[in-house]
Amino acid sequence: MQTHRKKRIEIIVESAIEHRLVAAIEAEGASGYTTHPVIGGKGHHGAWQEIGITPGSGKLAIVVIASPELAERLVPKLYAAMADYSGVILMSDVEVIRSAHFS
């Protein structure tokens, strides 16, 4: 089966600024994204865990599949929006089947 090469951008970030990242993703013209819950982990800022009652204190993961050109435009925007917040941006190569679904 024929597949198409795309970039997969995964962002793990504080849910307080989810709206900011989603705005950047939509402004750059990505055709979609997926958000995932994350429940805890450990990183540069130490260990963390979702604490139930305080909204916006947790983190979430956002996954965007994009063409290499779009990914190149999008990543600096995401990075700027995340200034001052803890989180990571990861980019990897993926193969998709329905190329038309991803701009």
Binding site: E14, A16, I17, I51, I53, T54, P55, G56, S57, D84
Partner: peptide, 26 residues
């Protein structure tokens, strides 16, 4: 507060130590 204020402060003052604030209040 450990509900309304932490969320607002995280948005407005990301460089503040939000973890310490919640530890203290909660």
């Amino acid at each position: 507060s450990y509900i309304a204020v932490p969320a607002a402060m995280r948005l407005a003052l990301p460089r503040a130590d939000g973890g310490l604030a919640i530890t203290l209040s909660l």
